[in-house]
Amino acid sequence: MSKVLLIDDDIELVDMLKEYLEQEKFEVHVAYDGESGVIEALSGQYAIVVLDVMMPRLNGLETLRRIRAKSNLPVLMLTAKGDDTDRIIGLELGADDYVPKPCTPRELTARVRAILRRTVIDNPGHSPYSPLAVGALSMWPEQRRATWSGRPLELTSSEFNLLEVLARNAGKPVSKQHLSEQGLGRPLARFDRNIDVHLSSIRQKIATLGSDKSCIQTVYRLGYQFIKE
């Protein structure tokens, strides 16, 4: 049973989402403010956090910032419908995905499942000591671990998934539609900038580990490509 942490001060919405998630066989815990939410999120008990942006005292973006300072736990943001600013800032801070409010419990549950499917070990027969290696990049999907030139590459769940898709297709352009389906677990929506923001973050993280050029290139009208060195 996957354990979900809901952080939201909207009691009525939280009760509805909690009831539906529990019917879908999730174990759910609720925090009604960001400060207690951070403490719970960093306790190591949860598989994923569902976090609302609009909260009093400690808002969702600052809550996410504090979680990301110490953990790569998957985080799904709840954002106001049409509020692109909070959405993009959330992604830049390390959110794995977002769902605009108002949302249905069914939609939220589907998005939670899509993220969790890509964070569990789904190939136990494969040796964790056999990495997916492309140039300076090495990835161990079963362990959700990656290195660049032997140094740890700290990635969020969605960043790891997207980089793995690109690495498995190294030397070939990969469309944003394919990246969204395989990396985020959903079709690409119109005007969706999730992938662009996630890949920008990956590039920055790789750059801090000493790469003097981007190994992820934008291919005009085709998508993105991981460059074989």
Rank of each mutant, 00 (worst) to 15 (best):
D15T: 14
L76K: 02
R66V: 05
K101G: 02
P131M: 14
I67S: 02
R87G: 02
G44L: 08
S138M: 14
L132Q: 13
L116Q: 04
R57A: 08
L116T: 03
K101A: 07
E40C: 13
A95E: 02
E22W: 10
V112I: 15
E62L: 13
K18S: 14
K25N: 13
L17G: 03
P131W: 12
P128I: 15
G44Y: 01
P102D: 07
A114F: 06
V134Q: 12
S36R: 15
G34V: 07
I88W: 06
R66I: 05
Y98Q: 02
D86T: 13
P128E: 09
Y46D: 01
P102I: 06
L64W: 01
Y98S: 06
G34P: 02
L42I: 07
E35K: 15
L132A: 11
G125N: 13
A31K: 06
R111C: 06
E27N: 11
L137V: 08
P124R: 08
P124F: 10
K81N: 11
G37C: 07
P100H: 12
I88M: 12
A41R: 01
V112W: 00
R87D: 02
E35S: 12
K25P: 00
M55P: 01
I39T: 13
K101C: 05
R106I: 09
E92C: 02
V112K: 04
V75H: 01
R57Y: 11
L42S: 09
S36L: 10
L51W: 06
D86G: 07
L76P: 00
I89F: 10
L91I: 07
V75Y: 00
E107C: 07
K25L: 10
L73R: 01
D97K: 03
I48K: 00
E107F: 15
M77G: 01
K18M: 10
H29W: 06
V120I: 12
D15P: 04
L78S: 03
V75R: 01
G37S: 08
R57G: 03
E40W: 10
L108K: 04
D97F: 03
M54I: 12
A136V: 09
K25A: 11
V28K: 04
M55K: 08
S127I: 07
P128F: 05
R117C: 08
E62V: 11
S130C: 09
V50M: 04
G94E: 00
H126Y: 11
T109S: 14
Q23T: 10
G94R: 01
A31N: 03
T104K: 12
N72M: 14
I121T: 10
L21N: 03
D52E: 14
P128Q: 08
E35N: 14
V50I: 15
E35C: 06
G44E: 04
N72Y: 05
V49R: 00
H29E: 15
L17N: 09
S138H: 11
A80W: 03
L116M: 12
V49A: 03
P74A: 02
K101Y: 04
V49I: 13
D122F: 11
L93A: 05
S36K: 15
Y20M: 06
S43I: 05
Y98D: 05
L21H: 03
Y129E: 09
I88Q: 12
